[in-house]
Amino acid sequence: MTRREERRRLLGTDVIEAIHARVAEAPALPEDAIADVRRILTRPAGRTTAEPTEDQTAA
């Protein structure tokens, strides 16, 4: 059973349809908000690589 099928079994078709209806009513996010979320999810610490620790720099 797929995750989708499992959710449908647990929640029921009526609940799934209500969720879809509420999502459809929500306003679209502005492009700058989408860009911010993408940046946060891809670089949560604001950097692309880990900075060396003191132990790594002393070695």
Rank of each mutant, 00 (worst) to 15 (best):
M1T: 06
M1H: 13
T2F: 06
R3H: 12
R3W: 11
R3Q: 15
R4G: 15
E5G: 10
E5H: 06
E6I: 11
E6S: 11
E6Q: 11
R7C: 01
R7N: 06
R7V: 06
L10I: 09
L10P: 00
L11C: 03
L11I: 04
L11N: 03
G12T: 01
G12K: 02
T13M: 02
T13P: 07
D14R: 05
D14H: 11
V15C: 11
V15T: 15
I16F: 02
I16N: 01
I16H: 01
I16T: 07
E17S: 07
E17A: 15
A18T: 05
A18Q: 15
H20W: 09
A21L: 02
R22D: 15
R22V: 14
R22C: 08
V23S: 07
V23I: 14
V23R: 04
V23M: 07
A24S: 13
A24Q: 11
A24R: 12
A24N: 12
A24P: 03
E25V: 00
E25W: 07
A26L: 12
A26F: 05
P27L: 00
A28K: 08
A28D: 14
A28S: 11
A28E: 13
A28H: 12
A28M: 05
L29W: 14
P30R: 04
P30C: 09
P30W: 01
E31T: 10
E31N: 03
D32G: 04
I34L: 01
I34G: 00
A35R: 03
D36I: 00
V37R: 03
V37E: 02
V37D: 03
V37C: 02
R38I: 12
R38G: 05
R39V: 03
I40L: 10
L41P: 00
T42S: 11
R43P: 00
R43A: 02
R43Y: 06
P44Q: 08
A45C: 08
A45H: 13
A45F: 11
A45T: 12
G46L: 06
G46V: 02
G46W: 03
R47I: 09
T48R: 14
T48C: 04
T48Y: 08
T49M: 10
T49R: 12
T49D: 14
T49V: 06
A50M: 14
A50N: 13
A50L: 15
A50D: 13
E51K: 15
E51W: 05
P52T: 14
P52N: 11
P52R: 13
P52D: 10
E54N: 06
E54S: 13
Q56W: 04
T57H: 08
T57G: 09
T57N: 12
A58W: 01
A58F: 05
A58H: 05
A59L: 14
A59W: 08
A59G: 10
A59C: 15
